[in-house]
Amino acid sequence: MRGVSGLGQLDSLEGLTNRSGWPHSLFSTDGLPRDAALEIIGTAREMVEVGRRRVKKLPTLRGRTVINAFFENSTRTRVSFELAGKRMGADVINFSAAASSGAKGETLGDTARTLAAMNPDLIVIRHPEGGAPWFLRERVGCAVINAGDGINEHPTQALLDALTLMEQLGDLDGRTIAIVGDVAHSRVARSNIHLLHTLGATVICVSPSTMRPAQMDQSLKAQWTDDLDAVLPRCDAVMMLRIQRERLRESLFPHNREFAIRFGLNPRRADLLPAHGIILHPGPMNRGVEIEPAVADGDRAMILSQVENGVAVRMALQLMLLARGEG
């Protein structure tokens, strides 16, 4: 373990700057430099074009090994990473395991060392607990991409969202983006807040207080309100977060109907957006809860562009982490 500071030596979060892991890995968008983010997004734009060709495969990462280590069920993200790796020419292996200690009879430390012994060039990790990518990186020599760690971060989602926003809105400097839903327990929200701030946008989180992060004013560079109608007219885009069923048990909200009434994006609310305003959702959607079908399928919704851009961003990241810096 790296030594930690005592009281008086490190007194605020601002003393901990770049936590992104860039340029050897990507754990987080917290502190990811603006130049690096724009370079990833720019490279991803080229990859969008590649993905639309008849022959979509590049030889760039031929002979390189990528392991998708998924400790939590995911189809969409795993498929996106798998497709991205294959389109770059890498050999992609999918590995899944249960996460909880003891249950599987092997610690994450043992799993990490086992994977490392197979000499991968990149491990993509999805894990139900925050911090797992940092843990993995300390025990493997290769690059690591965080594909979602607990309620912490999902940096590739934020990058694909930024690409989608920039395709529609251009430069994000001075833009205002609302993030609606369970911000406190959303890795999508946390990564987006960091990245959008870096790219110059203003972020307004909209949720009941039960879904607001603790001491948010001191921890995250975003505003907060519980009044969705009031903020929509000044938003260039609104991101709807997926409502997780398990949060019902924690009494974060009484039931789906009430959430839909207070925070759901229905046609009336969508019309409060300015004419150029767009709608994002990381998927999978709960139609009728956080978003109504007429809105999800309408012209302003960028949901399928997000999926396409997700593959492109993951191609770009694998290219930049594996093919560069090796002269």
Binding site: L13, G130, N152, A184, R187, A214, Q215, Q218, S219, L220
Partner: peptide, 21 residues
């Protein structure tokens, strides 16, 4: 505590871990 793993506050919000208030 509700299954939290660190102190609930500004740092847990930034770290993305469930808090123990």
């Amino acid at each position: 505590s509700n299954g939290g793993s660190m102190h609930e506050g500004a740092v847990s919000s930034r770290a993305g871990l469930r808090g123990i208030p």
